[in-house]
Design a protein around this nucleic acid. Structure first.
Lengths: 214, 214
DNA sequence: GTCTATACGCGGATAGAC
DNA sequence: GTCTATCCGCGTATAGAC
């Protein structure tokens, strides 16, 4: 199971092409601006001004704004990849899922003003849906979460769980909560949601492991 | 509490100023285009072209694009208001919550390609956060969902539940599922998530009380 | 009350010089 | 790699026609 993926020393990104110095400057500036003004509210001019160059100079590095958005999003996604690497090092499937859940919640809370703003944008979602590297990461995530189950129940469950975590951290209802409280409650509820079993056997510890229904 | 709002014949909206004929045409066109191209990807020109007028004619009805987005969003939110009206007619609190949950899930699935695309947009969320009528609706929703509970657990729970439902319906994992299946699974899991109780004897003080002001 | 004509500034995008 | 110059579409804005 333990597939080792090569990570760059900077830890900035893993699969896509390594960034040049100029590109790194652009992506970092973009990440800060996206978090503050949203993706649509950030212009190439703002990015250029922040670095101290002209709009066309930025344009020379990335031929379109979408490419910048994609590069910035991939930098965030790379963090998820790292979390999965760590989780996958655990010994059995239950431990892997537990470590993964904790890692995801930690990540979501830690970057509740950054990642969610970027990855939550519908334009970004559209872009990432067509990105091979990103799909690789999400596929891995869903496989780790649901195992080999392919039922509609498993799909909906995984969709709800990821949507709940990423959506809750930037939800208006919880803006007043500090990171520690949010993380604790989120992990607690997410864990129990993931452990929900089919309504048949209600909270009755089954003695034997149920046969894979598949 | 059960305020009866006058609904236009089309059932389009409830609390804000009633729309003129021209405004209704614009909002309807905007809703279709937003669902297809996203909010940021829809220009005033597209809206004007679809109705068969000039851009300036549209601008004459709504002085800014944000006003159009707001009007369109409110038309969607009005549906939620109707669902809450129906749920609140139930006899006791448990029944109200059950009817509400079913109504929310039905609504989310029915408009899985419309509502979520519009209300999920961060720009729209920002706009709605400053809209009095919208906050009234969401406050009512959260009160019906959580009762009078004001604990951080209740906040996180409500945030996760609403995020899970609205986020799951447009999640890549479930695009292949038909509406009936999605609705059934979603309702089932949402119901059980809402019924989760606080586990006993599991207290670990965070101790550090930091001012959560941001 | 609904629309047209026209214009301004900004944003993304491109070509070519240094 | 970075620049200037230029293009077109977009949101915004005003004045006025029916």
């Amino acid at each position: 199971m333990g597939r080792v993926t090569a990570l760059s020393a900077g830890g900035e990104q893993s699969r896509s092409a390594p960034l040049t110095a100029a590109q790194t400057r652009i992506v970092n500036a973009a990440l800060e601006l996206f978090a503050r003004h949203g993706v649509g509210g950030t212009s190439l001019q703002m990015i250029a001004d922040r670095i101290g160059v002209t709009k066309a100079a930025v344009y020379h590095q990335y031929r379109t704004k979408d490419e910048i958005v994609l590069a910035a999003a991939e930098a965030e996604v790379a963090r998820l990849d790292t979390v999965m690497d760590a989780a996958e090092a655990e010994s059995n499937r239950a431990r892997v899922r537990a470590a993964l859940l904790r890692g995801i919640v930690d990540l979501a809370v830690e970057r509740r003003r950054t990642t969610s703003t970027i990855l939550g944008d519908p334009v970004v979602a559209q872009l990432l849906a067509h990105d091979a590297g990103f799909r690789q990461v999400t596929d891995r995530l869903y496989r780790l979460l649901m195992g080999d189950e392919a039922s509609s129940d498993a799909y909906v469950r995984a969709a709800m769980l990821t949507a709940a975590i990423s959506g809750a951290v930037m939800h208006p209802l919880v803006v007043g909560l500090d990171d520690d409280t949010l993380r604790e409650q989120l992990l607690n509820l997410a864990r129990r949601f993931l452990e929900l079993r089919e309504p048949r056997a209600r909270r009755k510890r089954p003695a034997t492991r149920r046969a894979a229904k598949r």
